[in-house]
Nucleic acid binder design. Structure first.
Lengths: 239, 239
DNA sequence: CCGCTTGTGTTCGCTATCGCACAGTGAGCT
DNA sequence: AGCTCACTGTGCGATAGCGAACACAAGCGG
């Protein structure tokens, strides 16, 4: 079991001043998220919002023919369920657990109450939303202009940044679904990375052995997103 | 010259209750936006926000090598400059006028003041932002999975929805920049549409002659976005 | 230990799109 | 009227990614 105040491992909760946190603390509920679990279905209202701790959640756009693409990824730095406070209540996208782990959840109504107090929580969540927006925008560009190789690097780095270890539990098939490409394309790209000694993988387990090497290969999209998250959240000035 | 209260042709301003509007009305300034004009540069703070009336603004992600992709489009239904109230102040993307026309602008600080009163304006802008988010997400998917043909249809319909007439002043070269594809690709796709009798174009002027035909060819992305805008804004229930 | 399921590697032909080069052609300017 | 330049059409070869098919291999349950 993890120590108390574990929820501060979520960046948003940790950035919140004590006073504001006090309203929420009694209602934060620790839950386990399992690989593949869906936190939000297209068009369905969420009962809770989730603050991941060591889990990762993918936001996916699923099309009529079943093809999907990840439009953003949420980890310890964020929250799943922004449509609740944004006012739309639902979104057309799905939220699926991409890496199992813990998260804290909170009843949607409680989050809304806190949000509409128009205090620190509101400002924080809006800045986070803007960061998420940047991630989506950059994903759109990356989908258009960059090779599967580069996108795989971006995806690995984005995941790595949200994980406590350097190992991902993830099959090539699933990565392909996220990136919206063929599984064979991922096999090929991952093969290149392995040959180059940057990663080693093995039936659903990918270990990054040379992070700098990945950073050297990745397209600019990764850095743009990372810089924006840093700017908007790490340098967050409470009030 | 357009009639007074012209600014109500912007959906956001028109949805605002009179009381709230009263704060802003004296400060709304009508401006002309010219084709290609930039309203916002990457990383630069905007002095004003813009509420388009009959103009269209594209939000573009520009990469280091100069290649670009449109990530969303804003017309009479929206506002340019969401980063001001979202708290980030800047974005990594550019906002470029895609179709000349009028807009009302408002000093950034005034908008922020109104936003942080946490009244109707805030709720409205947040719902709009969520709609914008959906547009970006769907653009990302569309970039990944759909053909240039389909994307051109989507782009034409999105533009058409924001224009008072059925004619766009737009070269194939510019459309290519928006979609992030080659100019030749647009020439070819546009040729098909013309042959099919859906559009007729002529040196920078595109006229849509059969809108239903476009809707029959477009991918689902258009409908998803449109439905979400309708849901979030047209059915907007003030408070 | 066997056999099944799941994950990975590889091949082949196909298509959309790219990058480039160059040829028309219309609109507006002088 | 004639020029010029921006816009459009077209035709290459090159290539990345697709779709389908199949072989292999590793872990798992019985």
């Amino acid at each position: 079991m993890l120590e108390p105040h574990d929820f501060k491992k979520n960046a948003l909760l940790s950035l919140l001043p004590e006073d504001d946190l006090a309203h929420l603390r009694p209602h934060l509920e620790k839950v386990t998220l399992t690989l593949g679990q869906s936190l939000s279905e297209s068009g369905r209202q969420m009962s809770h919002v989730y603050f991941p701790v060591d889990s990762i959640v993918s936001l996916l756009c699923v099309m009529e023919n079943g093809a999907s693409t990840e439009i953003a990824v949420v980890g310890y730095e964020g929250i799943v369920g922004i449509s609740l406070f944004m006012g739309g209540e639902t979104t057309p996208s799905r939220a699926v657990v991409q890496s199992a782990g813990y998260a804290y959840r909170l009843k949607g109504q409680l989050l809304k109450n806190e949000f509409y107090r128009a205090g620190s929580m509101q400002r924080l969540l809006l800045r986070y939303t803007q960061a998420l927006l940047t991630q989506m925008a950059q994903t759109a560009v990356c989908n258009r202009h960059h090779s599967v190789d580069q996108q795989l690097c971006r995806w690995l780095l984005l995941s790595l940044d949200r994980l406590p270890s350097d190992e991902l539990v993830m099959t090539q098939e699933l990565i392909a679904n996220m990136l919206g490409v063929r599984r064979e394309g991922v096999t090929e790209s991952a093969g290149k990375l392995q040959k180059a000694g940057l990663i080693s993988y093995n039936r659903g387990h990918i270990k990054v052995t040379n992070r700098l090497g990945l950073e050297a290969r990745v397209c600019e999209c990764y850095a743009v997103v990372k810089r924006e998250y840093d700017r908007l959240l790490n340098h967050y000035d409470v009030m």
